[in-house]
Design a protein around this nucleic acid. Structure first.
Length: 626
DNA sequence: GTAGGGTTAG
């Protein structure tokens, strides 16, 4: 590569004119816009006899090693010509290694620096500690810690912050805490690093304790914790924290906005999500690609597809993730054709799809029963875009074929996959066995799946439902015993409905809601009404609520039925009911929802674990295909 | 003469 070629050096001798690079020349060197300009400067420096001058060469190295249009290879060659590089030059090349993701080389250069008796300084340590993180160099990291102390930086805040960060990275939380505790002065970064460290390793409560003891909190540190709650699906706590942050008059920045949008997405809290979106618009917070994707995702997953499309089409420029998100949104709402249409538009706009694009396209096909289209795109992604199918893509295809009743073909594809099928792939096939009542294959896959994912209650429930459908109650009982022996608890089903910006949560059969009596009365009335419209309880999946069996009529009080009853009580005729459920909708609730939409003349939008159901006029947008 | 650390999608 010619760009790696060093300019020809004029031999430097003692008689060469001793001169300086003028301030103007230095300025021009620093504002180089490309490597060829830089090389001219370098050549000039050599001619002036300044090739051993660390001041001049440091700037050359800086441009090559760390600037946007630099060239690390050239920096390294130039570095080799410098007889006695100073700390600045070592630091700069080390940063170059780190930027280019060569952490091991960075650490190696650090040892050379020491061997050549060049003292590391406060700029050296952040860089080499970062290299230890990225290079998984635990032992070297500890040694660098010793060097920080030995070279006199034991009270340098930035160096110590980097030590905390490194220990957090290695999940050495006690060491991180020890460094933090010994600091004489801490800045907000010290606190944030420790708090986000606890949070990211799942010690959210410890993170909160540290936050409580912090003297002054900015939006970054609030967000470190809010984001952690969101990641752990503790959305209500994220909201509590957000409200506390607002009470302290800390401004809502784009990071917090993004986390809170995700919290709204998690809960299906559309009104809250809209409030944050309008805050973003009113306060001129820039809708960068990530934030735009988060907004679109929120509208999709809170059931407001039209608004998601409006935001999407209003974006000045759309990155691949925005397209992916919108295609995925249409897919989960069962609008397979529209998703494919959007994908074709993406191609017309010459946006290169990635593997996620195809996961979403295939999912769109699967959720809408577009078998031929799915087969086509499965081939197309490799043949036209050179994207090899991953596990997820096979999973989509197996889901697609399985739902469509082509169980043999689905199984064949699973056997042919070049990688071993994981729990989600097996889960797709098992789900198909449940839909199509294939007991033999279902039992075989179900047992495998339970072995692979023994703590996931959903797997047991799915197989139990297959047995129950087939009347094999002895097998159901055995599975239940297995679950009990292993201490696997069924994940309790809950549904939320947001009314006037307040999120109300319902758990199946629970009677702790302050208006429980009223709600249960309404639920009974609701069920009576639809019974006269032809509702027959579908009891075969009673196992959806394994723990509720003692209750007289567990099915009647599934959480989404309670949420619907509450919604009917608290809203005006004609208002849309939007409900979010953490598990899959069971057949009985699906049937009941269709009838409720008809009898009460209401549009009901239910988000379940996998997709959306728009109930209207006695029908569902999923065409009973879910 | 000059460079460093913490928070966000799918």
């Amino acid at each position: 590569m010619s760009s790696l070629q060093l300019v020809q050096a004029t031999p430097f001798s003692a008689t060469s004119p001793k001169t300086h690079y003028t301030p103007l020349q230095l300025q021009s060197l620093e504002s180089c816009s490309n490597m060829s300009e830089l090389k001219q400067h370098h050549s000039h420096i050599i001619k002036l006899g300044l090739s051993t001058n660390n001041d001049a060469m440091g700037r050359v190295i800086k441009f090559c090693a760390v600037s946007k249009h630099g060239d690390l290879g050239y920096a390294l060659k130039a570095f080799d010509t410098i007889p006695q590089p100073d700390a600045f030059i070592y630091n700069t090349v080390m940063r170059g290694y780190l930027h280019c993701r060569f952490p091991r080389d960075c650490i190696h250069l650090y040892t050379q620096m020491l061997e050549n008796s060049v003292f590391p300084n406060n700029f050296t340590f952040p860089c080499v500690l970062g290299a230890c993180c990225h290079g998984d160099a635990v032992e070297q990291g500890r040694q660098v810690h010793a060097h920080v102390l030995k070279f006199g930086y034991s009270s340098h805040v930035v160096c110590l912050n980097n030590l905390i960060h490194m220990y957090v990275n290695f999940e050495f939380l006690e060491e991180a805490r020890r460094v933090f505790d010994r600091m004489l002065t801490r800045d907000v970064v010290s606190w944030t690093t420790l708090i986000s460290g606890y949070a990211q390793w799942g010690c959210v409560d410890e993170a909160l304790r540290v936050l409580e003891s912090m003297p002054e909190r900015n939006s970054v540190v609030w967000n470190a914790l809010i984001a952690a709650y969101v990641q752990n699906n503790r959305f209500h706590e994220a909201f509590d924290l957000f409200n506390r942050m607002r009470a302290e008059n800390v401004v809502l920045d784009k990071f917090v906005a993004s986390s809170m949008l995700s919290a709204c997405t998690g809960l299906g809290a559309l009104e809250q999500g809209r409030w944050i979106h309008s805050y973003i618009e009113k306060n001129g917070i820039e809708l960068d690609t990530k934030l735009a994707t988060t907004v679109i995702d929120m509208y999709c997953k809170c059931g407001f597809l039209e608004k998601a499309l409006e935001v999407f089409h209003g974006l000045p420029c759309r990155g691949v993730s925005s397209w992916n998100c919108m295609i995925g949104g249409l897919a989960m709402h069962g609008q397979g054709e529209a998703a494919i249409e959007l994908f074709m538009e993406m191609e017309r706009k010459a946006v290169a799809p990635d593997n996620i694009t195809f996961v979403n396209v295939l999912n769109a096909c699967a959720h809408s029963g577009l078998v031929e289209e799915g087969r086509y795109y499965f081939q197309y992604m490799t043949e036209v875009h050179g994207i090899d199918p991953r596990r997820e893509h096979y999973g989509c295809m197996i889901d697609l074929l399985g739902r469509a009743g082509m169980l043999e073909e689905a199984r064949k594809l699973m056997d042919e996959m070049p990688m071993s099928p994981d729990a989600s792939v097996l889960g797709a096939l098992l789900g198909a066995c449940r839909i199509h009542g294939n007991i033999e294959l279902g039992e075989q896959i179900g047992k495998k799946l339970i072995d692979l994912d023994p703590n996931n209650s959903g797997r047991y429930v799915l197989l139990a439902n297959i047995y129950a459908n087939a009347g094999k109650f002895e097998d159901v009982a055995n599975l239940r015993n297995l679950m009990n022996n292993r201490g696997v608890k069924k994940c309790p089903g809950f549904s939320v409905i947001e009314l006037k910006g307040v999120v109300h949560e319902f758990i199946a059969g629970e009677e702790t809601h302050p208006q429980a009596k009223e709600i249960y009365t309404k639920a009974n009335e609701m069920l009576e009404c639809i019974r006269s419209a032809g509702y027959v309880p579908c009891t075969e999946e009673v196992l959806q609520d394994l723990e509720e069996e003692e209750k007289e009529n567990p099915l009647y009080y599934h959480s989404e039925k309670l949420a619907m009853a509450f919604g009917l009580l608290k809203t005006n005729p004609g208002e849309i009911l939007r409900i979010t459920k953490n598990l899959r909708v069971c057949r009985d609730c699906h049937q009941a929802s269709k009838l409720i939409s008809k009898v009460y003349d209401r549009e009901i939008i239910v988000r379940d674990r996998n997709r959306f159901h728009h109930f209207k006029n006695g029908e569902c947008s999923c065409k009973d295909y879910w």
